[in-house]
Design a binder for these strands. Structure first.
Length: 977
RNA sequence: GCCCGAGUGGCGAAAUUGGUAUACGCGAGAGACUUAAAAUCUCUUGGUGGCAACACCGUGCCGGUUCGAGUCCGGCCUCGGGCACCA
């Protein structure tokens, strides 16, 4: 047979045209077939076009879609454009063209580039967020939210980017700067539309558990972003201690005004609050500041306000603050604690005011240290022996309470520490003993050191940490103990020493050890705890424990203490259980041109009125200048003809809302529109939605883990609530795509001049080679550097497949059963490959799918003759990866229909089993031999063969065989000694 | 600082989840064909020692569990990603 050379160019364009002409990818509802909706995150059509990294995800979904299609699924695999947003607008400003013009041009470029890669998208369902027929429904969703009170106008100061000249949402920041342009952002008081996403916070959080096919890292990010924390709100009454100044706080004399609420996740530490802090922006700051402190407080507020958002959150920065002159009454004990202003407290979280508990919060501790505010421990670390330890508390025995002292002694001359070694327990501790009734703890420590080790002259230095509670079983006394332990630190003045009693000597011995060995033999958590504090000089204990110094909470574990405090506060009406989120309501107004107009009319009489649905879409008008004014006015406000309208409610004069929606609006629901793209009566037909939804598989960049995917889930749940969609979650399975970096390891960017254009690759090596290579590079979700050398490998693989056409036997002369015999080995490998490729595509392990095909092809290449059957099945599994060459070769074998109308090959269960295996023989776990045996060899036979092997005899000789381990179909391990 | 993820040849990476470590590809070296080169094909390619059979070492580091650990446990180190004064 004479074959042509593999010419990718003619093949690829030929089949692309043919597939389009034959509408191979046209999708419709078909109740008879199971549906599969596979979706890519639609691209933003930028002016620079695609680089080779962009299509990686599309290639993968295309492979998946084609396989599903061949497996008999009705596959929806659409594509569209997320085309609103700042880049198009900035480009328009610079080049004096309408954003529409550049957007359309970019879309055309993208579409052409994607077309060359041979994707199976159904272009009849193409959508474009900037198309009025599309954004009509974006506006419609907004109106429904407005009707339900989920879209509201807010006058709270918002984040403002002075360079982009627009307000931003919290999510639009990256490291405290504008994520688009990197500018420092400001806070600006402005009226804007806000979406009440926090109403959905709990549902979004809880429903993450209903998404087992989402990557856990992305779910984790969403959890972090929602940032739910449970705690309490507590009311502190504001007073002024000094009577003579009381008139200054007279404004607060009425009961309601006299309280400030704080949020805390640790209500159990309320007794440890030693001061109170308010954010500089807190509205009550000016009211509670005394005349005397006024100047200083105002200076501080100006200082804090002048800092950028970034400077303020700089963690390394030292804490600053200023005393207001007023005091707050701690509701649990009536203590008056000073009120400070400090910018480490943020107005945006909780209530903008906190109770500060320096003993149990690192930030409060740092602040208290700087300003000499007392630190009062109210939680004792708690240790309980657990597991199989001997000293585990035993049930049915009374517990004795004891005060004990640990004495940590250092010899400053040698820098060694005095420890007690307990041979019976194989561990060491500090000197330890009980405190007698009424005895001074420092003296008790000295006494114990003398009794146990004989050292007489100690100088007390300081206490290490504070009290620690331990619950254990005292084996020598046969009783349970609850010990309240404190640790005293001494230094040896001299080495003068008394003789130690025989009794003490028998129990344990004293030893001096260097600092690095102190914790070597320590097994008790409480002892190690003190040592950690000693080493780090750390005094803040932020974990759970047992409440102390806390009146009615004393002795309770943190969890119970929290509950009891909340109950107490609720009874006294001084606080309540509360939940807080990091997630903020979504600031939804942008003062820019290229976005969906917000469909609201402002009327003096009726306020904000929604545009009647029949008047949608509110089309984006033509303007002279797209330039944002910078004053917070949108460019749309410069068109009186458009702005001035009538109020739909009262018919009086009305003004249109001139702000537009953020770029994320359209992408929050676009996937629904693919289902029913032409419908002008509804956003989506409910029956069609029921058929296609939810999206079975969604593939896209991890950078959208918290924004797009949170917004989309929020809108979807809202649409579910108002009955537009049938399912509560939009995306069943989610997979993120790893970036393709440039050959130099950096991101591909015009800036570095390292961009590789897919057009060039397609031209030179072909779309099929590029598709195969990008899948072969590495694990799909991992980022990986591009290598043109690697691409050549993929191309060679395709050439091999092309060339082995020559080895196909004249299939008309032989019955296919005959091949089965001849090609038995190949056939087995083929069936294994079919299995592996199918499973790997399903699991999105596309790199190993390619490698499995390579192994098969290498093996086929070695054969002089191969059967048509084997070759055809190879083409079938190859076809999703390299559709053009597979289709071409399929046609060469006289097939009249497209390979994609063929069904996905099944593998033969019998053929994937090995008849013979290489039995691994180990001696003591080390490989010593492999023996070829039948796959189903029995344990006894295997052992017999192994022990007869010459190689093994050598190892077993003169040794005792302890046991022989047999793993069926795998190995025999002989344990000898 | 906190929460994820990862560390395997010269490089991209495999490893049926505890059972032959380095499949597949790239690169490199040697050879064949050729006047020559490219292309193609064949062989070699973790390290050390040895003529060899073979032996020892080897999956970031230290320790543990196990007949057996890249895989599990404990403690570090390094690199990516996310969050970051969130009370």
């Amino acid at each position: 047979m004479n074959i042509k050379r593999y010419n990718h160019k003619s093949i690829e364009s030929k089949w692309q045209n043919k597939w389009e002409k034959e509408q191979l990818y046209k999708t419709g509802e078909d109740k008879k077939r199971p549906k599969y909706y596979i979706l890519d995150m639609f691209p933003y059509p930028s002016g620079t076009g695609l680089h080779v990294g962009h299509p990686k995800g599309y290639i993968a979904t295309d492979i998946f879609a084609r396989m599903k299609m061949m497996q008999g699924y009705n596959v929806l695999h659409p594509m569209g454009w997320d085309a609103f947003g700042l880049p198009a607008e900035n480009f328009a400003l610079k080049n004096k063209t309408h954003p529409r013009t550049s957007t359309d041009k970019n879309i055309a470029t993208f579409k052409e580039q994607l077309g060359k890669l041979g994707f199976s998208h159904d272009w009849e369902r193409e959508i474009n967020t900037t198309d009025p027929k599309f954004y009509k429904w974006t506006q419609w969703i907004f109106l429904q939210m407005f009707k339900k009170g989920l879209a509201y106008e807010s006058h709270e100061p918002i984040i403002w980017c002075p360079s982009c000249k627009t307000g931003l949402a919290q999510e639009d920041l990256e490291g405290g700067k504008c994520e688009r342009c990197g500018s420092d952002v400001e806070r600006r008081p402005m009226c804007q539309w806000v979406l009440r996403i926090t109403d959905y916070a709990d549902r979004m959080l809880n429903d993450l558990e209903k998404l087992p096919e989402w990557e856990s890292s992305i779910k984790e990010m969403q959890r972090g972003w929602i940032g739910r924390s449970e705690g309490a709100e507590v009311q502190f009454q504001i007073v002024n201690k000094r009577k003579e100044l009381s008139s200054e706080v007279s404004e607060l004399s009425s009961k309601e005004d006299g309280f400030i609420t704080v949020f805390t996740t640790r209500p159990d530490t309320l007794f440890g609050a030693t001061y109170f802090v308010m954010a500089p922006e807190h509205p009550l700051v000016t009211k509670i500041t005394t005349q005397k402190r006024k100047a200083e407080v105002e200076r501080y507020i100006r200082f804090a306000g002048s800092k950028s958002e970034l400077e303020r959150t700089e963690l390394t920065k030292e804490k600053t603050g200023v005393f207001t002159g007023s005091y707050a009454i701690n509701p649990v004990n009536g203590e008056e604690i000073p009120i400070w202003i400090a910018d480490y407290v943020m107005m945006g979280y909780g209530t903008g005011a906190i109770m500060a508990v320096p003993a149990h919060d690192e930030r409060d501790f740092e602040f208290a240290k700087k300003y000499n505010i007392p630190v009062k421990p109210v939680v004792a670390p708690f240790f309980e022996a657990n597991g199989d330890m001997k000293d585990k508390v035993r049930e049915g025995i009374p517990t004795k309470k004891r005060n004990i002292v640990y004495a940590l002694v250092k010899n400053p001359k040698t820098n060694q520490f005095l420890l007690i070694k307990w041979p019976e327990y194989k561990c060491s501790t500090y000197v330890v003993g009980g405190i007698d009734e009424g005895e001074d703890i420092v003296e008790a420590g000295k006494r114990e050191v003398l009794e146990e080790t004989g050292y007489k002259n100690l100088k007390f230095i300081k206490e290490i940490g504070s009290e620690v509670h331990v619950n254990y079983y005292a084996t020598h006394k046969k009783e349970n103990r609850y010990a309240i332990a404190r640790c005293m630190y001494y230094e040896l003045e001299n080495e003068e020493r008394d003789e130690v009693s025989e009794e003490e000597k028998n129990k344990h011995e004293a030893a001096w050890v260097s600092e690095k060995d102190v914790d070597k033999d320590m097994i008790f958590g409480n002892i190690i705890h003190f040592w950690d504090i000693f080493k780090k000089e750390e005094k803040v204990y932020c974990e759970n424990g047992i409440s102390i110094n806390s009146d009615f909470l004393n002795g309770l574990k943190t969890k119970e203490a929290k509950e009891k405090t909340i109950t107490w506060l609720e009874e006294k009406k001084l606080g309540k259980k509360a939940i807080n989120y990091k997630l903020k309501d979504w600031v939804f107004s942008r003062q820019r041109y290229w976005g969906e107009p917000i469909p609201i009319i402002h009327c003096e009489k009726c306020g904000a009125v929604g545009v009647p649905e029949e008047n949608l879409p509110v089309k984006l008008p033509e303007v002279e200048r797209y330039e944002p004014s910078g004053t917070g006015e949108s460019p749309l406000s410069t068109i009186p003809k458009w702005v001035n309208t009538t109020c739909p409610k009262c018919g009086g004069p009305g003004k249109r809302e001139t702000n537009t929606m953020p770029q994320w609006a359209g992408s929050s629901w676009y996937y629904l529109r693919y289902i029913d793209p032409e419908n002008d009566k509804r956003l989506v037909d409910k029956k069609k939605e029921k058929y296609w939804s939810p999206v079975d598989f969604y593939v896209g960049g991890a950078e959208h883990a918290t924004r797009h995917l949170i917004y989309a889930r929020f809108w979807h749940k809202f649409l579910y609530d108002i009955g537009v969609v049938n399912y509560e979650e939009p995306f069943t399975r989610l997979q993120h795509v790893g970036l393709i970096m440039a050959e130099d390891g950096r991101k591909m960017s015009k800036r570095w001049g390292n961009v590789i254009n897919p057009d060039d690759i397609v031209e030179k090596y072909g779309a099929d080679a590029m598709r195969v290579y990008e899948m072969f590079m590495g694990p799909f979700s991992q980022s990986c550097a591009w290598s043109t050398n690697g691409l050549v490998g993929a191309r060679k693989f395709l050439e091999k497949i092309w060339n082995i056409q020559l080895s196909i036997k004249n299939y008309e002369l032989y019955p296919s059963s005959e091949y089965k015999r001849i090609d038995d080995n190949l056939n087995r490998l083929l069936h294994k490959t079919i299995k592996k490729v199918g499973e790997d595509i399903e699991g999105f392990k596309l790199n190993t799918a390619v490698s499995a095909m390579m192994i098969l092809v290498n093996s086929m290449e070695k054969e002089k003759e191969i059967s048509k059957e084997v070759y055809e099945k190879l083409l079938l599994v190859l076809s999703p990866f390299a559709p053009h060459i597979a289709e071409e070769l399929w046609g060469e074998l006289d097939n009249k229909e497209s390979i994609f109308k063929e069904t996905w090959p099944e593998y033969d269960q019998e053929l994937i089993k090995d008849e013979k295996i290489q039995l691994v023989v180990q001696i003591n776990g080390k490989l010593r031999d492999t023996i070829e045996v039948g796959a189903d060899i029995s344990e006894d036979d295997a052992k017999k063969i192994v022990l007869e092997s010459e190689k093994i005899k050598k190892w077993v000789e003169n040794k005792n065989i302890i046991k022989i381990i047999f793993v069926k179909g795998r190995l025999v391990n002989v344990v000898v000694r």
